[in-house]
Design a protein around this nucleic acid. Structure first.
Length: 561
DNA sequence: TCGGTCACGTA
DNA sequence: CGTACGTGACCGAG
């Protein structure tokens, strides 16, 4: 019987979990049965049955086939319990409630469990319930039958996770979040392969203009570095510009007294002395020279693509992160991000995403009404009876916890005008302060760190305040990240028929590299996917609009600010 | 060699 | 005393 029929007979169908693990052999598992298959089989199975492909994580995932629905056990684990640890043995033990201090480690004799650890070595789960340590890593593909067995336990884990998600008390839909977080991992894997198109010649010119030419050798590098330094050290010999302490003393000598030498602090004093201006310009050049210079280009750009590692949900709030400078490329270098011949970029960035998200997750009907406007701050300003700019600062201050500055009066207005949203933020702050974990709208657990030891009373207060701001911010930023990823993976799925790829995700911005002929269609898709995501994510409880600025451009720098 | 601090890039 | 992240230089402890 053909594979598709066998799978269908075993109950595999749309949305049903189908375990898969890819090594030299491709193992499949569903409904208590296991199969070996080839990579070529998978696209056909996907098209015919639309299963939810279930894998342990990216190392067992299928990259390149653009499968759409998946369940990433590692990603869902991080959603359920927070943090970044997601190794299969730990995930399994956590999911099934096994003691983590009994977690067996590979390569060490386990005398305590020696009697119970035997059993069938071709079963990835030991009699005592733990995953065999010699199966993790690459142990699961040492034998032709193992990938299917490895896929089978991934499905068992996923089913248990599903039940836990169903039981979660979160404002949103944790299962929906699990689906999109899983797809986001797949997107990350594809982003790592795809890379961001870079015109290396343009990049080279920009870097040279800012930081100087590419050093020929070590000695040349030293000479060029000294040359850069001289623009500042002409004012004061023998000062180590890379030593903030020395720089601060130097500034004091010319009458500039600052607590630290950060550029935002020095910028207002730029014209007070030529040295300050020279120092600020030097810092700018030095940043490019050291972090985004010729060595960065050589290390991370190959074949006209900037590639780095991508993480689907990192840190506290579960934002995506990227390495190799993909997320912090200085604006001056963005002209080097150029679409390839016959292609264009479609760029889309969400507008006012965090206050809109707050309106949904807090369930504040009044803020949701404001969120129905193209410009959310306009109705807020009207309600508060203040200038738009004041309203904006107040809303941002409320979300981020700023207490200094001039937001005070408007902040009180916010409490009166939007009590539900403000209470949501205050509750998060209080929970964090007290050290209680919080869960985002989509169900991600954000664990509060323990207070440091040896703190005095004011130290404790400061640490608690920090934790409160952390929790409050995590709920807004985290929900925004969940919304963004749902949008991104929807776009990913809908773009599949086109000659188009997402090449960058930047918290509220998507960059799609697309054949020129498909650019208009891609732009329309970004818009319709946003509407679709807005519907699905907030269901019908509120009517917040989610807006995006979408443009078709040749280079990233052409995007309007 | 390592973690902490400073600094600065992005959102 | 607004948050998150990645990166690199430097410092001081080990």
């Amino acid at each position: 019987m053909p594979l598709v029929d066998e799978l269908a007979a075993a109950g595999v169908g749309p949305g049903r979990l189908l375990g898969v693990a890819i090594a030299d052999e491709v193992g499949l598992a569903a409904g208590g049965q296991r199969w070996n298959a080839s990579v070529d089989d998978l696209a056909g199975v996907d098209a015919a049955l639309h299963p939810r492909w279930t894998w342990w994580g990216r190392s067992t995932a299928v990259v390149g086939l653009r499968l759409s629905a998946c369940w990433d056990v590692a990603a869902v684990h991080r959603l359920l319990v927070g943090g970044v640890a997601d190794e299969p043995a730990l995930v399994w033990a956590t999911t099934f409630g096994l003691a983590l201090d009994g977690l067996p480690a590979d390569g060490q004799l386990d005398f305590v469990n020696a009697g119970t650890a035997d059993g069938d070595e071709d079963d990835p789960v030991r009699p005592d319930g733990y995953v065999r340590p010699d199966w993790v890593g690459d142990g699961w593909h040492r034998d032709v039958d193992r990938p299917a067995r490895w896929a089978e336990v991934a499905v068992r884990c996923a089913e248990r996770q599903r039940a836990q998600l169903d039981a979660l008390d979160a404002g949103g839909d944790p299962v929906l979040t699990a689906w999109s977080e899983s797809a986001a991992e797949l997107l990350c894997a594809e982003l790592e392969v795809e890379g961001l198109p870079i015109d290396v010649d343009v990049a080279d010119e920009l870097i040279t203009a800012i930081a100087g030419p590419r050093p020929r050798d070590e000695a040349d590098a030293t000479r060029l570095r000294a040359e850069r330094d001289r623009r500042v050290t002409q004012w004061a010999r023998d000062v180590d510009l890379r030593n903030p302490g020395e720089v601060r003393e130097l500034l004091a000598r010319i009458g500039v007294d600052v607590p630290d030498t950060r550029s935002w602090r020095l910028e207002p004093l730029r014209d007070s002395h030529p040295l300050v201006a020279a120092l600020l310009d030097w810092r700018k050049a030095e940043r490019v020279a050291t972090t985004y210079g010729h060595s960065w280009l050589a290390a991370h750009v190959r074949d006209g693509r900037l590639r780095g590692r991508w993480s689907g949900s990192d840190g506290a709030a579960g934002r995506m992160t990227a390495q190799a400078g993909l997320h912090n490329l200085p604006a001056e270098l963005r002209p080097a991000v150029v679409a390839e011949p016959g292609h264009a970029f479609v760029r889309a960035d969400l507008g006012q995403i965090e206050p809109r998200v707050l309106a949904v997750v807090s369930g504040d009907a009044e803020l949701a009404r404001a969120g129905a406007a193209d410009d959310l701050y306009a109705p807020v300003a009207q309600r508060l009876g203040v200038e738009r700019s004041v309203a904006k600062v107040a809303v941002l201050a409320a979300m981020y916890g700023q207490t200094s500055g001039t937001a005070g009066e408007a902040l009180r207005g916010l409490h009166r005008g939007y009590p539900v949203a403000m209470r949501y933020l205050d509750d998060a702050y209080e929970r964090g302060r007290a050290g209680r974990d919080v869960r985002t709208h989509g169900g991600r657990l954000v664990r509060m760190p323990a207070l440091g030891t040896g703190l005095d009373e004011s130290g404790v207060r400061a640490a608690q305040g920090g934790r409160g701001r952390y929790a409050r911010n995590a709920l807004v930023q985290g929900a925004a990240a969940e919304f963004f990823k749902m949008w991104a993976v929807t776009v990913r799925a809908r773009l599949a028929p086109l000659d188009a790829r997402i090449v960058l995700c930047l918290h509220d911005e998507l960059l799609v590299h697309v054949a020129t002929a498909d650019a208009d269609e891609a732009a329309a898709l970004l818009r319709s996917c946003l509407d679709e995501t807005a519907q699905r994510w907030q269901r019908e409880r509120t009517a917040v609009r989610f807006v995006a600025d979408i443009s078709t451009i040749q280079r990233w720098s052409q995007a309007k600010a």
